[in-house]
Nucleic acid binder design. Structure first.
Lengths: 126, 126
DNA sequence: GGTATATTTAGTTGGTTAGCTAAATATGCA
DNA sequence: TGCATATTTAGCTAACCAACTAAATATACC
């Protein structure tokens, strides 16, 4: 039962859900792209991704200085849960907005994203 | 997206999940039966049920002095989520143990349960 | 090796929440 | 109406968690 609550705890945070939604649209995303989407510090994003990985929903792969994340679609036991979430997200205005933001982000070279995040303020005071 | 995180927050608590599992087995349960199962005060159980109701997963019905809770199986949008949870619970030892406890509880007259809870210690120091 | 860069870990702070007790709100019955 | 009972609300405390900053750990390139 701890396994089950672990999955739901992982899904019970808005920013984690947003990152998961992003991974549903794109096979693989690197940390800086997810950071750019949800506008938090790298440390915060890293912690969130750690929770998603611990839940078994997401896997990561390290390549050079970058870490890439992807949804664990190969796990049969999560299939219908993931489908359900995808269906729910399809009718969510928030998710739609993020999807648009993501297409903009994907137009950038990841190198530039990283530089931008470390250089000037990564999270402009709103 | 708040709707979605609301559902997951409701499911992200062990005791709420146990109460939900109970409602999956029995069409309708009254408060005192759920209280007996998870061994918390009535106030705590009431709060938990409030969260489940707010999420839309559970409905309640008042009859006399008792309140009866049931799973909202008629909501099409939750069908596959509920099925997924049921499947996961089927292979959970914790859930199996609760299921046995429940059969014992169901053998009692609810009247007796309530009296017991109010009389001597409802939560015996383990 | 030394420096720059990307991510993670540690440590802190503020806000949320699960649990309790006690008080309030129904409801049933004499 | 008055009393007993079942559930909810209010108010409190302790534990948890998300966010940040700063420091640590890779990794790439010179």
């Amino acid at each position: 039962m701890e396994l089950l609550t672990g999955v739901f705890k992982a899904l019970a945070d808005r920013n984690r859900l947003r990152m998961l939604a992003a991974l549903m649209r794109y096979d693989e995303l690197c940390a800086c792209q997810l950071i750019e989407l949800i506008q938090v510090t790298g440390a915060t994003a890293s912690r969130h991704m750690g929770v998603l990985i611990a839940s078994g929903l997401v896997a990561s792969r390290k390549e050079g200085r970058w870490v890439y994340y992807r949804l664990c679609r190969e796990k049969a036991e999560y299939h219908s849960l993931i489908s359900w979430i995808e269906a729910r997200l399809k009718i969510s205005p928030d998710a739609e907005k993020d999807a648009k933001t993501l297409t903009t982000i994907m137009a950038f070279d990841p190198e530039d994203l990283c530089r931008k995040q470390h250089g000037e303020s990564c999270c402009p005071p709103k």
